[in-house]
Design a protein around this nucleic acid. Structure first.
Lengths: 188, 188, 188, 188
DNA sequence: TATGAATGAGCGTTCATTCAT
DNA sequence: AATGAATGAACGCTCATTCAT
């Protein structure tokens, strides 16, 4: 039941927004009463936190697996991470949207926790960029921090428009993005 | 008074969110009463729409000026547009955040209007990319649509992290982004 | 309207208790809606605090008038204070009951305020007892603090049983109490 | 288990009040679940009734023992009863507070029962006063009913302030009270 | 004996909106 | 141009109680 509530909530939060979705809305789609909700969650915010954690924790785990793989180059690792982000929209798109949109509705304490994890993900990418610069895979004159923001921006923004059922697959989009990031769009 | 209400609302909506800001909150900061608000606006949503229009219309106007300037290359136009977006965060950061975050709170009719303008801005960039491809400024094998999403993603995302008072200026960030987009980060 | 709400609330709180009386109960007796209540009071607790203050402040003022009257003896002042307490049940009986029963429902801050005033009333009586002991009106071997508790207990308790429409008037009860307190019930 | 529930409830009801204490609060302190509570009690009110009965029945029994003792004077009996009341605060203070504060939360039927017993206790004191008047122990001109209210008020009120760990013991307080009641505070 | 899931009614509070003045 | 009183619907949440197991 807890899982059912979470799943239905994710769908509703994505469609209508967190503040705009009432507990009543959630339980109505399940045919249960509000009491049932509060049997499983101590507050609406706790449910939101669960959704946030479910998303970011899985992302961090996957990112770790990519970064620990020493057999592939930094370029390839970068591709995998971009692919991870865009692909996650196909699999967990609703959670992704909630993650990026509804942070403001967490309490200060919980927000700190989530921001920490989000920053950790970013710092891991920044470190990868630096490593690639040292190893000669990337140009040595990059501003790693800002380039990282650019890469993550391109990838994360896709939750706003990427349609898993559209013309391009997540892999294609990731390839186009990484190609652009690596080689640039300029004709030499 | 209408302008004063709008200005104070922008600040509040940015800080606390649209749904989380009450009419009472707004009029309290102005020392007037709720009746005054409804003398100038027919609903809270109309105010939100005004803020949205104020932001996107100005952006479209500026974009037009850049695109109509035939004396500069496509590359330069692209730079100007990225700079426009990041720079707008310094000048109109609150409106930018509201624009990207609070679309959901518009009625369907009004949303359509705004989405149209937002898409227009994007299609203008896509057309610029295609023009550059034809003119030989950009590589001819690009997927213009997706590359455009990537560029706008990198630029728009900056409203989430860019701090006008931080280490890098808006111009520097724009330069780093456009350099990355044009030349790529790979060491040849 | 604020006064009307307060008056009706006092009656309801007395009859059913503070926790057991809902805002809905209150506004129903007035034929208005809950919104109206919150237009005048920021919370249910604020209303309770108003009732508490209305009672104790008036009592303290009256007590002060008695104690500042230098033309009457300590004995007479004691009588006036007991009479004040019992008489207040006739006039403000409901408030009195609420005052003694519903302190627990105030927030810590507000409780402190009220307890201070209640203690001030008691300390004023204790001081009167000491003064009477020094002046030779009262026996010199009294434990002023505990005797004060006894006197106030006898008087305050009357809110539990005293019926203004019963056989004895407030003045008679006060006279009987003070006679008992002064002369004792023992036959010498 | 039933006793354990009762004991923990008494402590909670005293601290937070009956209405403000939930069944969940009670079972949480015991590490059991709500079902367990309802296995032993048919309702929250039944539990409250049990607490009331436990207090007043014991008090009535003790009072009876005092009144049946023909070897001591009325004065002494009066002392014993006052001592019984104040002393009960030390031993059963929580129950005492609940008894005086939470009557309102009983159903009409149960309230009648309790009020009867409470009145019985009072009438026993009133009868004692009359007996003392007849026997020449007390002044013959007393209004027995109201004097009784005064005595019980002084004694019962002590649950509001008497601290068993404070400067004066229950016995001392009882002695001071009875001395005041018997001899008065006036210097002859 | 005790649990755990679920209910249903109610609570205090918020808030966008209306409207006579 | 602005106020102040009032509404009504909704919201997050609580809680005594039920009941199959």
């Amino acid at each position: 039941m807890k899982e059912k509530i979470t799943d239905h909530s994710i769908r509703l939060f994505e469609k209508k927004g967190f503040s705009e979705t009432s507990i009543q809305d959630i339980v109505d789609t399940l045919g249960v009463t509000k009491g049932t909700f509060y049997y499983y969650f101590s507050s609406k915010e706790e449910l939101l936190m669960n959704i946030h954690l479910g998303y970011i924790d899985e992302l961090l785990t996957s990112q770790m697996q990519i970064l620990e793989n020493n057999q592939i180059s930094c370029k390839q690792q970068l591709f995998e991470i971009v692919y991870l982000l865009i692909g996650s929209i196909e699999l967990k798109g609703s959670s992704a949207k909630i993650f990026f949109r509804e942070m403001r509705n967490l309490s200060e304490d919980r927000l700190t926790q989530i921001v920490q994890k989000r920053d950790q993900f970013r710092m891991n990418v920044e470190r990868l960029i630096r490593e690639g610069m040292e190893k000669g895979e990337f140009r040595a004159d990059l501003n790693a921090a800002i380039v990282t923001f650019g890469i993550l921006g391109a990838a994360n923004w896709s939750y706003q428009w990427f349609n898993p059922n559209g013309n391009s697959s997540d892999r294609e989009v990731a390839e186009i993005f990484v190609e652009m990031i690596l080689k640039g769009i300029q004709l030499n």
